[in-house]
Simulated scan of single mutants.
Amino acid sequence: MKISALGEFGLIRHIQKLFSRKAASTLIGIGDDAAALRLSPASVLLATTDMLLEDVHFDLSFTDFYTLGWKSAAVNLSDIAAMGGIPRFCLVSLGIPPAIAVERITEFYKGFHALTRAHKASLVGGDTCLSRKGLVISITVLGEIEKAAVITRSGARPGDRVFVTGPLGDSAAGLEILKTGGKGQGAGVRGQGAGRGRAENKLIQKHLRPVPRIAEGRKLALSGCVNAMIDISDGLSSDLAHICEQSRVGAEIYADTIPFSRDILREAGKLKKPPLEYALSGGEDYEILFTASPAKINKLRSLRLSIIEIGKIIRGKDISLIDRAGKRTPLRPRGYDHFRPIKGRAKRGI
């Protein structure tokens, strides 16, 4: 069905039916001028927003709409996770080209709902309009966290150890496989298995359907062990630089301690770049990067989280990558920057 057959308000009513069940904390949801929401009195509000633009952040030849909805939710939920919060409410605004059918928009919301429902976050509003140039997605997520538990990027201290919650580089490697494997509608998921091995498909899945580390972020924030935290959306080099800049410190990262999955190591000979390059500059892994005092490491280990120590925080502003032989190389931010694109990389993500 064409969206023009429903009209703007018919589409809103259609979306409203998809999300008809309200959480107890949603006093007024979709359909009014504003949502009315209830938060815990002992908490502070977290707010994050992201835009995703067709042919900048995603290519509809590489993904289906369900998966696009999932990922649109994931990138925002990950920001809440990076501060140790609990996601509560979502607002979705779409600029929709006239050629996109209602059924595809429905699939988008189903994918979005599949992930947000798993984390008990409710869709409470948004907006829709006509787009003349590609699909435009804007997501806002509101979360909450106890006042004393908020973790920011600015708390790293000299002597802190640097940790990540999982392997890096898989997402960027998955995108590389999609780009070099040819296009085809829905190739990202529904056409995933054709002609590809298990490791390739797992890397693609990491790119298309990332899993935000909400449980890990909560445990880390409530543990009292963590001084600074960020999610890895732009690549290790860039996101570490954010922590260092805001904390006014430097860092040393040991290249041979950066974790890689078996899948990326298995496919390394077929990829255009070594795994280390994908980890440093690829981004969209959505693992958590954090720092902790050496005095808190035993307590940190007792949380039984999957964490890997990869370096330490130092005085000054220098950020270095140190290889196994002890050679030190300046580690400059190499992740994607929308307004300073790297030559040869026209767009980011699916």
Results as ranks from 00 to 15, higher is better:
195 G>H: 03
177 I>G: 09
253 I>K: 03
153 R>H: 11
222 L>H: 08
213 R>T: 06
253 I>F: 06
167 P>F: 01
190 R>W: 15
257 T>G: 03
221 A>W: 01
187 A>T: 11
200 E>C: 02
219 K>Y: 06
191 G>C: 09
155 G>M: 02
201 N>F: 09
245 E>H: 08
236 L>D: 10
187 A>Q: 15
169 G>P: 06
146 E>L: 11
213 R>F: 09
148 A>R: 12
216 E>Y: 02
152 T>R: 12
229 M>R: 04
179 K>S: 14
250 G>L: 08
156 A>R: 00
242 H>Q: 12
183 K>M: 12
273 K>Y: 15
243 I>C: 00
172 A>G: 12
240 L>Q: 12
256 D>N: 11
146 E>P: 10
189 V>M: 14
187 A>K: 09
164 V>L: 01
202 K>S: 11
252 E>Y: 06
246 Q>W: 12
190 R>M: 13
163 F>M: 03
237 S>C: 09
242 H>G: 12
169 G>I: 00
208 L>W: 08
192 Q>A: 15
258 I>A: 06
247 S>C: 04
162 V>A: 03
159 G>L: 06
272 K>R: 15
232 I>F: 05
192 Q>K: 15
234 D>S: 13
219 K>V: 11
176 E>T: 10
183 K>L: 13
222 L>R: 11
173 A>N: 04
168 L>A: 03
216 E>A: 09
224 G>H: 08
228 A>Y: 02
247 S>M: 10
146 E>W: 00
198 R>D: 14
260 F>I: 01
248 R>I: 03
147 K>H: 09
259 P>K: 03
208 L>A: 12
